[in-house]
Design a protein around this nucleic acid. Structure first.
Length: 502
RNA sequence: GAGCCCUUAGCUCAACCGGCAGAGCACCUGACUCUUAAUCAGGGGGUUGUGGGUUCAAUUCCCACAGGGCUCACCA
């Protein structure tokens, strides 16, 4: 673990500090100024006659990023969360301490500087050190200073290193944090109540996906990590809460690729006495709010596409198939002809896909989804693929449901909630039948949920928004791993080291 | 799940048709009191992802495995 040649050399330097009575892992820092504050407070130093103010003292701290040692003086740059600052130190000012620093200070170390502001000959506002303390000795060398860390795998596996080396990474995750807190604020302002429902479930439901299974020892029961919070949130509506949201993790035991991580963040919100039209308006309002607060251009660049967030559209599922997917309208009522059409296009169809609605969904995925670039609400979903949505009064084949597509991807999914307990019972039964036919993503029968609906759920509309994908969109990120701090990775075998067992 | 590609020093990358594994940064020694990827002189550092195979000879060709990336399929 510590056998690397460079680590050994740096450990020897830490030892040298100890021998001089200095703790290479000292805890107490007297930092009184962030680097951004240092720049703010000293921006006028260059106007002074000798370009320095020895009467002002600041204590700053940060990680050494560049180091230029000369015979009796040195320049180095330290970086804290707020910025990067050049330090000048000389033997004149530091005496013997300078010699020790020359032998022990390295790029990567965390240091504390006490000094005064001055401007160098080349015009850079810097700090002139009276005192330099190594607070934390880094014994692992950093990647190369010019090219930085390039290896994609290392960026994901050692995010801390990615963060040390790449400011864009730090900025991207700060932006994610800001987006999440803006969304929270938006819903709280609208009177929604933030709640936390279980992540350990005993019934699989709320979405169509394969769950992670686990076991509770004391109760001796199998449990699954939730694939969605939906059914619990709607129980809260039954209980009398009229507007709730939950913004947290879901877990799905499925493939990993650049848009899927086994754990991902989902916003779900439920709004009693409102309709899906209210949801669509609210969604648009949320996007406008985010664009305004984040100061983003309404014509957003994403993966080579330009998305116009002033051009929101609404289209029905059937219209989308015909007008955007260019599918002949006359085959849309004929299961066999749709199957033939899909097979001719090379789409393989699983056996449990045997109804008009499910085939529409296959056609939609194959021919429509990727073409929906500007924000588009698709409405009038087939009822078979919408097991929790209210059936349309006008046409019982359709559910009162919409999905929002942006940049060829589903971003949100919402509907008027099904609150007829009998209809819900039948829909669950259809899920069980699909599961029996081999659909591994079918829901379980949730008896308690049916019971809850028997008590009466007021007319309610609910929606889910995938936060990771939203953040990808707003940060122009290619991979979901770029917006998740610690993405799921297959563990890498660490090389066995004899020293570790001694 | 399928196809294609990648893995060489701590990091970023070379190595032509199979012929002694190199460079820059970093590191070590020395010089240097205003440098900006500091500079100058010298030096050390490698089981080429792992395991097999072909060959006089393999970073290079073949096979398997591991990890990663991209594309397609499925899912959000």
């Amino acid at each position: 673990m510590f056998s690397n040649e460079y680590v050994q050399l740096r450990m020897a330097k830490a030892e040298k500090l100890k021998e001089s009575g200095l703790n290479p892992y000292d805890h107490y820092s007297k930092r009184d100024t962030k680097i951004s504050e240092f720049f703010e407070k000293n921006k006028d130093i260059s106007k002074l006659e000798n370009k320095r103010d020895e009467s002002k003292k600041f204590i700053v701290a940060g990680r050494v990023k560049f180091l230029r040692l000369m015979g009796k003086a040195a320049f180095f740059k330290i970086e804290d969360e707020s910025g990067i600052l050049q330090v000048y130190m000389s033997k004149n000012d530091l005496g013997e301490s300078f010699n020790l620093l020359k032998k022990t200070l390295e790029v990567g170390d965390i240091v504390e500087i006490k000094g005064y502001p001055f401007v160098t000959k080349t015009g850079e506002l810097s700090i002139h050190a009276d005192n330099v303390r190594i607070l934390t000795k880094a014994i692992h060398p950093l990647p190369e200073k010019f090219h930085g860390l390039q290896d994609i795998e290392t960026k994901y596996r050692q995010r801390y290193l990615d963060m040390i080396m790449n400011k864009q990474t730090r900025e991207r995750f700060k932006l994610r944090s800001k987006i999440v807190s803006l969304i929270r604020g938006f819903f709280l302002n609208k009177g929604f109540l933030e709640v936390e429902t279980p992540m350990l479930h005993t019934v699989v439901g709320g979405a169509n996906a394969r769950p992670f299974m686990t076991h509770h020892n004391a109760l001796d029961i199998d449990m699954n990590l939730r694939i969605a919070p939906e059914l619990f949130l709607k129980r809260l509506i039954v209980g009398g809460f009229e507007a709730v949201f939950e913004l947290n993790r879901n877990f799905r035991n499925e493939g990993i690729d650049h848009t899927h991580n086994p754990e991902f963040t989902m916003l779900e919100f439920y709004w009693a006495y409102h309709t899906m039209d209210d949801l669509m308006n609210l969604t648009k309002e949320l996007f406008d709010y985010l664009f305004e607060k984040l100061n983003l251009p309404k014509k957003l660049q994403f993966r080579g596409m330009e998305i116009d967030f002033d051009k929101w559209q609404t289209i029905t599922y059937k219209e989308a198939l015909v007008k955007i997917g260019n599918i002949p309208e006359n085959i849309l009522e004929n299961v066999d002809e749709m199957k033939k059409y899909l097979e001719n296009a090379g789409v393989k169809i699983e056996e449990h896909i045997d109804s008009k609605g499910k085939l529409w969904a296959e056609l939609f995925d194959a021919f429509v989804e990727s073409k929906l670039i500007d924000p588009t609400f698709v409405t009038e979903f087939p009822v078979e693929i919408s097991p929790l949505a209210r059936r349309s009064d006008k046409n019982p084949e359709f559910a009162e449901r919409f999905e929002l597509f942006i940049a060829g991807r589903e971003i949100a999914n919402g509907f008027n909630e099904l609150n007829d307990p009998l209809d819900q019972y039948e829909r669950f039964k259809a899920q069980l039948e699909a599961k029996a036919k081999g659909d591994e993503e079918g829901m379980d029968m949730d008896y308690d949920y049916i019971r809850a609906l028997q008590y009466g759920m007021p007319p309610t509309a609910g929606e889910g928004i995938g936060i990771d994908r939203l953040v990808m969109l707003l940060t122009n990120s290619e991979s979901i791993k770029d917006v998740i701090l610690f993405p799921t990775m297959k563990p890498k075998k660490e090389i066995f080291d004899q020293d570790d067992i001694k």
